[in-house]
């Protein structure tokens, strides 16, 4: 692990704005800062919170927020909650998988994008919903999902 990442981790853990600091809040701060939880972060959180490594892993593996390998360039989430399901979420998921050449959720082999299923993105009135890099888009069709994913992959290719 490079020193820059290490220092991002310790900044995230040590300078949380709220007054109640916990194992969970520390892990969320690290995830926000570097996009994943490396084992060095687990150790840093354990040290800061006076918890065992096991305690920290227990929390990190419970919540699906956390990933344990570095993030890809773009995060594509498709909601499959009941409102979105009724409005055709499975066709959106199929279109997203197809656009990314994936057969399930996960990272593309080239590291450009991650596909995640989400149980509820909280915008049910706009169903079906997807989120690209945390920006919500509603009333998605399979075609518009393909276009949005193609757009984001193009922007990844340009830098």
């Amino acid at each position: 692990m490079d020193a820059a990442t290490q220092s991002l981790i310790s900044d995230a853990v040590n300078s949380q704005p709220q007054s109640t600091v916990t194992v969970l809040s520390s892990l969320l701060a690290v995830e926000d800062a570097i996009g994943y939880i490396p084992k060095e972060a687990v150790e840093a959180v354990a040290l800061q919170m006076d918890a065992t490594i096991n305690d920290v892993w227990a929390v990190a593996t419970f919540y699906p927020n956390f990933r344990f390998v570095p993030p890809t360039e773009h995060r594509i989430e498709v909601c499959w909650g009941p409102s979105c399901h009724v409005m055709g979420a499975d066709r959106i998921i199929a279109a997203a998988q197809d656009s990314l050449s994936l057969s399930d959720e996960g990272d593309t082999p080239d590291g450009k994008a991650t596909l995640r299923y989400n149980t509820c993105l909280g915008a049910c009135a706009h169903a079906p919903v997807m989120a690209i890099d945390h920006h919500l888009a509603g009333r998605i069709t399979p075609e518009s999902a393909r276009e949005k994913i193609a757009d984001v992959l193009r922007s990844a290719a340009s830098h």
């Binding site: 109640t20 969970l24 929390v59």
Partner: peptide, 25 residues
């Protein structure tokens, strides 16, 4: 103050919510 939880439907349950505020599962 605002406390944050991870993605977990069950943390809407009152005692599970308390565990989450304390930073646990």
């Amino acid at each position: 103050e605002v406390a944050l939880t991870g993605d977990s439907y069950v943390s809407g349950e009152e005692t599970a919510l308390m565990e989450a505020i304390e930073g646990k599962r």
